Computed example of a mutant assay.
Amino acid sequence: MKRRDFILTAAAASGALALSPVAATAAPMVFTPGVVAKELAAGKTVFLDFKASWCSTCAAQERVIAALKAANPAYEQNISFVDVDWDDYGRHEFTKSLNIPRRSTLVVLKGDQELGRIVAQTGESEIKALMDTALNAATM
């Protein structure tokens, strides 16, 4: 193969990867004190992901969430996704106020209500059900 053909083929392939649905998902907001209150005050539905970089259960949940977002863009269009770093905020007042028992906890909030949560579950059906609860709340 000629060098120019190789470069053009490689460039086309990398461009196709950039347009894939998984690559198109936006990064979630990173939790800092006040960010959730701001989103809730604006009337948003918030999907909290309490996670740690070293947690294999968290990584499995993250893969499922990314795949579900890629399959249904309405999730990202209507829900505020917020990652809460367990190492930084596991003992924070915000985490305590929600009675979060551990990392790998996913919680949906709207207004002053908790709409649902799952703890340490990685099944697509459970995570999808929680995301659907958030989407329904966000679009009503």
Rank of each mutant, 00 (worst) to 15 (best):
L48D: 01
D49S: 15
D49L: 09
F50Y: 12
F50P: 08
F50Q: 09
K51I: 12
A52V: 11
S53Y: 09
S53G: 15
W54S: 08
C55Y: 05
S56P: 10
S56F: 05
S56D: 08
T57H: 04
T57M: 03
T57E: 05
T57Y: 06
C58S: 13
A59Y: 07
A59I: 10
A59R: 15
Q61A: 11
Q61M: 13
Q61V: 09
E62H: 13
E62L: 10
E62D: 14
V64G: 11
V64F: 13
V64E: 10
I65P: 03
I65E: 13
A66F: 00
A67I: 00
A67V: 07
L68T: 05
K69E: 14
K69F: 10
A71K: 15
A71G: 14
P73Y: 09
A74K: 13
Q77L: 13
Q77Y: 01
Q77A: 15
Q77G: 12
N78P: 00
I79R: 04
I79Y: 06
I79G: 09
S80G: 02
F81S: 03
F81T: 02
V82E: 00
V82W: 01
D83H: 14
V84C: 04
V84A: 04
D85C: 06
W86F: 07
D87G: 10
Y89W: 13
Y89G: 11
Y89C: 12
Y89E: 12
Y89M: 12
G90F: 08
G90S: 12
G90K: 13
G90I: 08
G90A: 13
R91I: 06
R91K: 15
R91F: 09
H92P: 12
F94K: 09
F94V: 05
F94R: 05
S97L: 07
S97Q: 10
N99V: 06
N99S: 15
N99I: 07
N99K: 14
I100L: 04
I100Q: 01
I100K: 00
P101C: 07
P101Q: 06
P101D: 08
P101A: 04
R102S: 15
R102P: 00
R102F: 07
R103G: 06
S104R: 02
T105L: 02
T105R: 00
L106N: 11
L106E: 12
V107L: 10
V107W: 06
V107E: 07
V107F: 08
V108R: 04
V108I: 06
L109D: 02
L109P: 04
L109C: 09
L109Q: 03
Q113V: 04
Q113R: 15
L115K: 12
L115Y: 04
G116A: 10
G116M: 12
G116I: 07
R117M: 01
R117T: 03
I118V: 14
I118Q: 13
I118W: 01
I118H: 01
V119C: 00
A120W: 01
A120N: 12
A120H: 03
A120K: 08
T122V: 11
G123K: 11
E124Q: 14
E124L: 05
E124Y: 00
E124D: 10
S125M: 12
S125I: 13
E126C: 06
I127Y: 09
I127F: 01
K128V: 06
K128E: 13
A129R: 11
A129K: 14
L130C: 06
M131Q: 11
T133N: 01
T133C: 00
A134I: 05
A134C: 08
A134V: 07
L135V: 02
L135C: 03
L135H: 02
L135K: 05
N136K: 15
N136Y: 05
A137S: 12
A138W: 02
